[in-house]
Amino acid sequence: MTAEGHLIFALASTILAKKMELSPALAHGDWWHIVAGGLVTCLLPDIDHPRSFLGQRLKWISLPIARVFGHRGFTHSLLAIIAGIVLFTLKLDPGMLIPLDAFHGMIIGYLSHILADMLTPAGVPLLWPCRWRFRLPVLYPQKGNQLERVLCVAVLIFAVQHPQGAPLGTRMPIPDSVAALWSKVRGNF
């Protein structure tokens, strides 16, 4: 997935997480903290690729990580997420340097990258160092990024339209006119 796709997908993910109130910090947090936190970390897993957006700018970090782990290795795993959370919570009080709502946004942003990469044929090794790849190949990078852009924008529109405080699986209200039309269509079969 491209940097553009990851940024749009992270924006959608942080908006949806805030609206679904996944944690008290997200439910009561500041929109600016949460969205900024998600956007700051959404490209971080690709630090393991020297030609990625971050890798090109931070080659001194990217090259050693790429040599040791390869692309879509450790940085694209649940172990990396756990290590990051432990690093912030054990060594530093996240509230001292980073507000808790922004910290939760950072976790959502990082997770959104991994979820988005699962939509490609290469998948991600969620259980690294185990080599199993988790994937739901919907996006094919060699065919351009139009489908990626459409999918990410559709997810963003869904997130913006999602009702505040509603879980993901609730039934959305259907207008009476749509229900009547559906009844007519079903009645013809």
Rank of each mutant, 00 (worst) to 15 (best):
L63C: 09
S77E: 09
A179Q: 15
L54H: 07
K59M: 11
V178G: 02
H162Q: 03
T75H: 05
T14R: 00
I61L: 15
R133W: 06
H33Y: 07
A116L: 14
A122I: 11
I114W: 04
P175K: 02
H28N: 11
W32S: 05
A159S: 14
R51S: 14
I157Y: 02
P141D: 09
S23P: 06
H113W: 00
T170W: 04
H76T: 13
H33Q: 07
I108A: 05
R67K: 14
L26R: 01
Y140I: 11
N188W: 10
V153D: 08
H33V: 01
D48M: 09
G73P: 08
R57N: 09
D93L: 00
N188F: 08
G169P: 01
L151T: 12
R149T: 15
R131A: 14
D48E: 13
G84W: 03
R149M: 15
G109H: 03
I82N: 00
L156H: 03
V178N: 02
P173D: 12
A36L: 14
I85L: 11
G95P: 10
K184F: 06
W60E: 12
Y110D: 12
E4N: 08
F103I: 13
T170E: 02
A83G: 11
W128E: 11
F88C: 13
D117R: 00
A12W: 04
L26A: 02
K143P: 05
G55Q: 05
W31A: 10
A179F: 07
I81A: 11
K91A: 12
P167A: 05
A66G: 06
C152R: 00
W32K: 05
A154G: 14
I157S: 08
L22E: 14
M172L: 15
M96N: 08
P141F: 03
H71C: 10
M96S: 11
D48R: 03
S183F: 01
L119P: 06
K91I: 14
L22Q: 13
I81C: 11
L139P: 02
T75K: 04
V150P: 06
G55R: 04
M172H: 05
K91F: 15
F158Y: 07
W31M: 06
V155T: 14
G70H: 09
V138I: 15
S13E: 08
H49D: 13
G105K: 02
H162A: 04
F9G: 02
T75V: 06
G73F: 03
H71R: 10
V124N: 02
L87Q: 02
V35M: 09
P121D: 09
A154I: 05
S177Q: 05
L90C: 14
S13C: 07
G70Y: 10
A179V: 11
A10H: 06
L43T: 06
L151S: 06
L16K: 00
R57Q: 12
P64F: 10
H28I: 01
A25D: 09
A3P: 08
V40P: 03
L126D: 06
L92I: 15
L147D: 04
G144S: 11
